[in-house]
Design a protein around this nucleic acid. Structure first.
Lengths: 139, 139
DNA sequence: TTGAAAGTTAACCATAAAGTTAACTATGGA
DNA sequence: TCCATAGTTAACTTTATGGTTAACTTTCAA
């Protein structure tokens, strides 16, 4: 039994897995306090469909709604993304480190395609845990 | 019509939304080249269930499998996470920037809970797009 | 050569997700 | 007061997800 439970991550990643929801968040990023109808307008789906997406985003803590009169405006709440980002950051070295060096350890044989070099030597070593975090994200 | 399509992001986030799959990836991170059975052993679900999770991870390009004899070893392929991370990074300022300053613009009134600082001043300005990416992720 | 081990596939089930249409509540302005 | 606007809720359909058990193929080793 492992129990790697983290409902926050579950919900955050699940919420972000839908392109419509990501687009809704992007819209709220560039323009805060948008009404539900305005938010829904660009999409080729019905208002209730958008409502459900907003519910998912609310449940994930990614937006907050405020009712003023009869209009409801939505507000981006990006904080839950931090955990998601931190989770991903643990894997950052896989694409930031020079892949040639990394490949020497990790790919001790032909992974995926190209069935060349069946070296099989020194299979127990692992790359030495990324000496520096090296945050070289390029856009 | 907006069409914010990105099947890669869709599949990556969807794959990461399940705790079992995240645990599988974590395992492959700390120990490369694990067999399917070994990978499945710690979990309280059947082997076919794990197979399906591995299929999802494969489809997302997050693992590669290699068959040697009758055993299949799995290899973490974290590269698709880079796009996910980059997507999230666009929102980083929401939790890295001093929230008090941010709050002055964004929360022009009581959003969600904590109805503190109802400054309401200068409600149209928005934080000036994060002068530097400032990758001060902690953890 | 025969049988256990490793993995895969198929068929099935229950629930969740994503969408629809239709009906409803509430608000604000003419 | 009346009605259009803004949003919500309900009921339903379809498809995807996550799980099961059972049967099957391939490989290794006694």
């Amino acid at each position: 039994m492992v129990n790697f439970q983290s409902p926050i991550l579950d919900r955050t990643f699940a919420a972000l897995a839908d392109p419509t929801r990501r687009a809704l968040l992007a819209r709220l990023d560039e323009q805060g306090g948008v009404s539900v109808s305005d938010l829904a307008r660009p999409f080729p789906v019905s208002l209730p469909a958008i409502m459900k997406h907003l519910d998912v985003l609310s449940d994930a803590g990614l937006i907050a709604r405020k009712k003023t009169g009869r209009t409801v405006t939505c507000q981006l709440k990006a904080e839950p993304m931090e955990q998601a980002m931190n989770w991903l950051a643990k894997y950052e070295r896989y694409w930031t480190e020079q892949l040639d060096r990394l490949a020497a350890f990790v790919e001790d044989d032909s992974w995926q395609a190209s069935p060349a070099s069946p070296s099989s030597a020194a299979s127990k070593r692992r790359p030495k845990k990324s000496t520096k975090p090296g945050p070289s994200r390029k856009r």
